[in-house]
Design a protein around this nucleic acid. Structure first.
Lengths: 361, 361
DNA sequence: TGTGTTTGTTCGTACGCTTTACTAACAAAC
DNA sequence: GTTTGTTAGTAAAGCGTACGAACAAACACA
């Protein structure tokens, strides 16, 4: 640990404070961070020189004393490019502000195979960077599959990838910072930074498959083999269930994934629909109960088609969880839909860039 | 982040290196840590002045150059006191070396109620400190119940405690650093530091109840309400099961805790015993499968009566886990007994002190 | 006009680590 | 016995980082 590491930490502390609390004076920053005004002035000067922070004009004086010069992140001066490769039909890309607002979109049809996918993704990213009309802080990518800490996609059956270094490929093609992570892990970051989630939260993402992203004490969990969150093919219950594409019986994905669930709903009468949704929700609760017990998460967030998840399914999940865990410890566990909608992975990808480049989350 | 924090980090880095690799020269430390020889000399001088490190004599010269003066943690000059309050009949205490070796023991009968327990524990700790015949680095305590980050026992039904600040009570009575944590959380630290466990490990402790301790990326998980690991009263399976003391049906504890399991074994014929153990192991596997899926732990360690756990039960657990998770991601999950035996909580309590006082683990 | 408050900067100081340069102590080769 | 080369550890100087003291600027209020 060298002094410059401490300096970097303090730089991030200033950026983090501005990110969450908005424009304020140097003296405000001093009070918020506990560093002295002198040190803050020095740090802010450095951050202004680097272009991350800008002076925003004087605060209209409200009391005695010299009026304050407000400083803030240069929010208008930067953009982030986010990509979501988890869609069934399209690769979706967006230009985002530092606040996670989407100010531009573009998408291309899904490709398969290493070469074709990379070509499509690079082209999508290049177009978005060109349209940003501002310096791009970096490119964040949320992709299905197991992704290691350096953005190497270890396995991604849907995209036909195994051991492919997407991060380096994109960085070399675009000459910008690139961060690649699993889509559900990106999503939980969006929920944490923009969705007001607490420090211990599990996000369950239901789509073609079922994945999850986990934050413990505000830190993303990666797992021993970078496979944390890969919960789709865990068997749930001890009484059989639907057959899964993986060959097993009763996988969470066979109960809950959108294709399986919509197929069962389509085959059922209108009266049976609620029962089917409640069954799926109960299965999710059964799978989550031991996780809530071991991890003591306070919040479970669902992401996916609202018409499927937000209703009988979510209700059955929370009821099952309450019934299967000890109220004394985990009474407060909340289950809710995300409010980030379909853009959750894009916004999570932006958080990855904010976190990687500014140390902000 | 101030410069002195960096200094503290580097002090711990030196101690950590010596702790794990044993005596070495200052130049060796420089190579291991990446800090310069000058800085290491300065740090070592400070640590010697503080009594944590001692010079151990010259290394017999093996090559050219000036012979090296070996330095090491002053292992003989310090002791740690560990307490294990999780026993059914006794509070167990021990004097330990910095290497976790037990060099003295003492125990007292279990008391109940705040006042009586504190009196018994303080007296036990005081006797051990007096017998240590060396400066005691601190006192670590592993206790059943939910314990917060400051050593306040939020709930401990077995001891009749709720919201009791054991850490402060002991610190004021004994005037030594005190660290209190849940017994299973202490146990997993022992397994990590002394048992060669990896960075992502779950320890399941089977005794009167069933608890667990979890390390993710080498960091202990606490949970949103400090209740991480409280897995005993999670319902497992969807086909009923034994009635639990908590009133629910099919709790993991009703399947697996020692009193319930021995009672079922005693009531069964010799031929049925293996089936009962396998059933219990299967239930454990069912409960652990979603946890392995979400957390991607590489290692599950069992702690408790060897004659119950180490055999058909553990075998059934690992078979169930393999059957219920996707081999592609979690093939390598190992299930094994701890080799720390009955002293695992005591040794874990020592790790808490090492970690808290020296930054070593 | 003076007094008190707040902001932000300048100056000098303390601390931590590095680089550079040195001494001490040894082995190997001659 | 001398020279050469290597390794261990220390001393001095310099740079980066944060702090406290002091101050000027700008304002409210009496």
């Amino acid at each position: 640990m060298l002094p410059e590491h401490a300096r970097g930490h303090n730089r991030s502390l200033v950026l983090q404070t501005l990110f969450h609390q908005g424009a304020m004076s140097r003296a405000d920053l001093s009070r918020e961070t506990g560093l002295t005004r002198v040190t803050i002035s020095d740090l802010v000067g450095e951050l202004i020189a680097d272009g991350f922070v800008a002076e925003m004009g004087m605060r209209e004086a409200s009391g005695p004393g010299k009026p304050a010069m407000l400083v803030d992140l240069d929010r208008d001066g930067h953009r982030i490019v986010g990509l979501d490769l988890s869609g069934a039909d399209e690769f979706i890309g967006a230009i985002l502000t530092l606040d996670g607002d989407i100010v531009g979109r573009k998408s291309v049809a899904v490709a398969t195979g290493e070469g074709a996918v990379v070509e499509a993704v690079v082209s999508l990213a290049r177009d978005l960077v060109a349209d940003a009309h501002a310096p791009v802080l970096g490119i964040g990518v949320g992709t299905p599959g197991v992704v290691d800490e350096h953005g190497v996609i270890l396995t991604a059956p849907n995209l036909g990838w195994a051991g492919f270094d997407l991060e380096t490929a994109l960085r070399e093609a675009l000459d910008l910072p690139v961060l690649v992570a699993n889509d559900a892990n990106a999503a939980v970051l969006a929920e944490y930074t923009f969705g007001g989630a607490g420090d211990d939260v599990l996000l369950v993402k239901v789509g073609r498959g079922v994945g999850s992203g986990l934050l413990a004490s505000g830190q993303p969990m990666r797992g021993a083999h970078f496979a944390a969150g890969e919960v789709g093919h865990v068997t749930v219950g001890t009484d059989g269930g639907p057959v899964c594409v993986c060959g097993k019986v009763g996988c969470l994905e066979a109960w809950l994934a959108v294709p399986a669930l919509t197929a069962r709903l389509a085959a059922a009468s209108a009266d049976d629909r609620e029962g089917i949704l409640r069954d799926a929700g109960e299965r999710l609760g059964i799978a989550l109960a031991p996780i809530v017990g071991v991890l003591d998460v306070s919040e479970i967030v669902l992401s996916g088609p609202q018409e499927l998840l937000d209703g009988p399914l979510a209700e059955a999940t929370v009821e099952t969880l309450r019934a299967r865990t000890l109220a004394q410890f985990h009474d407060g566990v909340r289950v809710r839909m995300t409010e980030q909608g379909q853009d959750i992975v894009l916004r999570g990808a932006a958080v990855m860039v904010l976190s990687g480049q500014l140390g902000v989350s």
